[in-house]
Computed example of a mutant assay.
Amino acid sequence: MRAPLKLAAEPWAYLGADEAIDVEHDLIVSTAASMRTGDDAAYAKAVFEFVRDEISHSPDAGDRRLTWRASDVLRERTGLCYAKAHLYVALLRAGGVEAGLCYQRLTEDGSAFVLHGLAAVLLEDHWVRVDPRGGEAGKGVEFSATEDRLVYTVRPELGEVDYLTVYASPVPAVLKALQSHDDCLALCEEGGLPSALEE
Rank of each mutant, 00 (worst) to 15 (best):
L7I: 12
A8E: 06
A8Q: 10
E10V: 14
E10P: 07
Y14I: 09
G16H: 05
E19Q: 14
D22P: 03
I28Q: 02
S34Y: 04
S34W: 05
S34T: 08
M35D: 01
R36P: 11
R36W: 10
G38F: 05
G38C: 05
D40A: 15
A41V: 11
A42G: 15
Y43P: 13
Y43D: 13
K45P: 10
K45H: 14
R52Y: 01
P59Y: 14
D60Y: 06
D63M: 08
R64V: 14
R65T: 12
L66G: 08
T67P: 02
R69K: 15
A70W: 00
V73P: 06
L74W: 01
T78W: 04
L80G: 09
C81W: 01
Y82I: 02
A85F: 02
A85C: 02
H86L: 09
L87W: 05
V89N: 01
A94E: 05
V97L: 07
L101M: 04
L106R: 05
T107R: 03
T107L: 03
S111C: 13
A112V: 15
F113N: 01
F113R: 03
H116P: 02
H116S: 03
G117Y: 01
G117K: 00
V121H: 01
L123G: 10
L123E: 06
D125F: 10
D125A: 15
D125C: 12
W127T: 11
W127V: 14
W127S: 01
W127E: 13
D131Q: 00
D131L: 07
G134M: 11
G134I: 12
G135T: 12
E136N: 14
G138P: 04
G138L: 08
G138T: 09
G138D: 00
G140F: 08
V141L: 03
V141E: 00
E142T: 14
F143D: 10
R149Y: 08
T153G: 11
P156F: 06
G159M: 07
D162P: 12
Y163F: 00
S169V: 13
P170A: 11
V174M: 05
V174T: 00
V174E: 06
V174W: 00
S180I: 13
H181R: 12
H181T: 02
D182Q: 12
C184N: 07
C184H: 10
C184V: 05
E189C: 04
G191M: 06
G192N: 07
G192I: 13
A196H: 12
L197I: 13
E198W: 09
E199L: 11
E199P: 12
